[in-house]
Amino acid sequence: MEALMRTVTEDGTLIFQTHSPTLSDPAEWENPPVPEEWHETIRRTMPAFDPAKTPVTFLGVLPELFRTHPAVYRSNHPAFSLSAWGKQAKELTSQHSLSFSLNDDSPLGKIYQTNAQVLLLGVDYDTNTSFHLSEYRSGTYKEMTRGAPLLVDEERQWVTYQDIEMDEEQFNVIGRAYESGHRVIKGHVGQAECRLFPMAESVDFATDWLKNK
């Protein structure tokens, strides 16, 4: 992580997805599901989201290590936060609406407006968070109601909000199609295969792909 920071330098900005999707409605849980009679108890007792304390889940060690760095800013979203370090870190993470969490008004949408590059470090396109922005832009996904425990006026509350049904299962297919016609820099960091490519160009490609699939 610190090697990435030294490479980017404080004149640039380094961003990680620091999602915590376990802070969600138990009715959505599938791996494993929980009995319906447990749902209300879980909603009532799940700890409220805290940007400084809530751990990253399902994303590996680097995002969690990055989140805890003292110079990193984390956006305030219970499920889909992003964290940033460097020149634009505070600006990019300062506002994160609860509803429609990764759309153009979110930190992810703000990042799209910069000259950002996506680095897939030892992972495939199915972990490429920026393709979720394409889902919103394509207008092809159903809306849904999500839920999460938040601190509201310093009191824990279960809050519901609107979002879309995200689906990263097609992201590897989209990524391969993107590679076939666009320049993607490939290399290795240790034994990890890596890909580097422009965020805006790939998001535009994925948006068109989803509209025309």
Rank of each mutant, 00 (worst) to 15 (best):
R183A: 10
A177K: 09
V159I: 15
T7W: 12
W85L: 10
D105M: 03
V123W: 03
P35C: 12
A27L: 14
L62A: 05
V72R: 00
W209F: 13
D104C: 11
P51R: 07
Y178D: 03
E91L: 14
E28P: 01
W158Q: 03
I42N: 01
F16Q: 07
L4E: 00
A192Y: 10
V118A: 00
K211Q: 09
F66E: 02
L150G: 10
T41W: 00
T114S: 13
H77W: 09
E2A: 13
I111V: 15
A148L: 08
T13A: 09
R176A: 07
H69T: 09
N31S: 15
A48C: 09
A116C: 12
L62C: 08
T41I: 13
V8F: 02
R6G: 15
R44W: 08
K142T: 11
T45W: 05
L92G: 06
S138M: 05
V123K: 01
V173Y: 00
V184E: 03
W85R: 02
M144V: 11
S101A: 14
L92Q: 07
P55A: 14
R195Y: 02
G12Q: 07
E91R: 14
V72Q: 01
W29V: 05
Y136D: 05
T18V: 15
V173M: 00
R146H: 02
L82R: 07
P21S: 07
V173F: 00
T41V: 13
M166T: 09
T129W: 00
L92S: 10
F100T: 07
G147N: 05
A79R: 08
S94W: 08
E165H: 04
T41M: 10
K53V: 10
G190S: 05
E37H: 14
Q157R: 15
L62W: 11
P33M: 10
H182W: 05
Y112L: 07
Q170L: 15
T93W: 05
V184C: 06
D11G: 13
